[in-house]
């Protein structure tokens, strides 16, 4: 109730479902101490603890935003269990390989077939989009917000407007990316 705990779990879940990034920062502050303690007690460093929590929170962010998400424990317990698993996974890898490459691509290694375009380059083009398109696409594809929530959050009239706007943005990005790679192909 006091300190950062002004925000109840249900409030935080609600804010995450609406894509409010402040909730992420609050969760970080709420949980960093327990995660730090845990990682430090398990052969880790403070930096590793921070990384684990950051990755965990992004996973939590995506999970919570799913429409069928149901929280049946305390949010902190939920975060802690995910962080714990992540850290044990990392520890295993650490013992197997001396040098750990913790690049973001690791999270995408589950894909069996190689992607058509380099994710990093697509990412750069996403960031070159105008703010509305960028946010819209991110909310839809990463955060998993539904059309109605996005309409509400970004001030669109209704979900159909969001859908067509999303299409426009997607095509804009697609053509930019395509142009880039076709140019590359010719070289």
């Amino acid at each position: 109730m006091f300190g950062l705990g002004f925000y109840s779990d249900s409030d935080l879940v609600k804010e995450i479902k609406q894509g409010n990034e402040k909730a992420l920062l609050i969760l970080y502050k709420q949980n960093i101490n327990s995660i730090k303690k845990f990682v430090l007690n398990n052969n880790g460093s403070i930096e590793e603890a921070q990384d684990v929590l950051q990755d965990t929170l992004i996973a939590v962010w995506q999970n919570v935003a799913k429409p069928d998400f149901l929280l049946n424990a305390k949010l902190s317990t939920y975060i802690f269990s995910i962080a714990k698993n992540q850290w044990y996974k990392q520890l295993k890898r650490k013992t197997r390989f001396k040098v750990v490459d913790e690049s973001a691509s690791e999270n995408f290694r589950a894909e069996e077939t190689p992607l058509k375009y380099d994710t990093k380059i697509v990412c750069d083009y996403v960031n070159k989009l105008d703010e509305t398109c960028r946010k819209l696409l991110m909310y839809f594809y990463f955060d998993g917000l539904d059309m109605n929530t996005i309409a509400e959050q970004m001030g669109f009239a209704n979900s159909d407007t969001v859908k067509s706007k999303k299409y426009q943005c997607f095509k804009k990005l697609e053509s930019a990316v395509k142009e880039h790679f076709e140019k590359d192909d010719f070289i």
Binding site: A104, N107, M138, F142
Partner: peptide
Amino acid sequence: AIIEGIKLARK
């Protein structure tokens, strides 16, 4: 591929 790019950007 593009969706993965968007996801990475957001992440």
